[in-house]
């Protein structure tokens, strides 16, 4: 789910406007992605989704609509889910980005990932990384979500194959496993 409170990056946009203009040519910037610091040299207009996919080869983050309508590109910004297609990489600053590639601990999957496999909450799989990121974020903030909490947390995600019922099953299961 996209955070509906006033996003931090609006504030940082305002700060950016006060700085000297940059671009249109490439500018240096540093991105902290999955606890690794990356130095990039990219155009200021590059979205976070483009930076992840094209510059860092982290192609698990998918772009379905490129305008914040499908949530396929969901990543974490300081632990909160955002649409990576709706944020410029240059506006990330020092905040930590977590992508689907950074969710598991080595070979050990996040409980949400394991539950998605066990409940077949995956069909074509294109929306799956974004859904997993929103579901995992929900469990971080609410270890015992109700079915309505789960529906709300995933309400921004478009899944054309219709995995929603199995996503709901997987999430209820993952929260049970976490409790025990």
């Amino acid at each position: 789910m996209l955070d509906t409170t006033l996003p931090d990056f609006l504030a940082s946009d305002a700060q950016a406007a006060e700085r000297d203009a940059v671009g249109p040519g490439p500018v240096p910037l540093t991105l902290d992605v999955n606890n690794v610091s990356h130095s990039l040299f990219i155009e200021p207009k590059t979205t976070l989704a483009e930076a992840l996919r094209d510059s860092l080869d982290l192609t698990g983050t998918k772009v379905g609509c490129d305008r914040g309508a499908c949530s396929a590109c969901t990543v974490w910004l300081d632990g909160k889910p955002i649409a990576a297609c709706m944020m410029l990489a240059i506006d990330v600053g020092s905040r930590k980005i977590t992508t689907i590639e950074g969710l598991a601990h080595g070979d050990e999957l996040h409980p949400v990932q394991s539950a998605f496999i066990a409940h077949d909450a995956v069909q074509c799989g294109f929306c799956t990384p974004g859904l997993v990121m929103s579901c995992a974020a929900l469990l971080e903030s609410n270890p015992t979500p109700t079915i309505d909490d789960i529906k709300a947390a995933t309400s921004g995600h478009l899944c054309r194959c219709g995995t929603h019922p199995h996503v709901h099953d997987a999430m209820l299961d993952a929260s049970r496993i976490r409790k025990t």
Binding site: L58, T99, E101, F116, G125, T128
Partner: peptide
């Protein structure tokens, strides 16, 4: 369980 489930939930599945 589907054989490419792990690849799809970790972002590794190549589209």
């Amino acid at each position: 369980p589907r054989i490419n489930g792990r690849a799809k939930v970790t972002g590794a599945a190549p589209f």
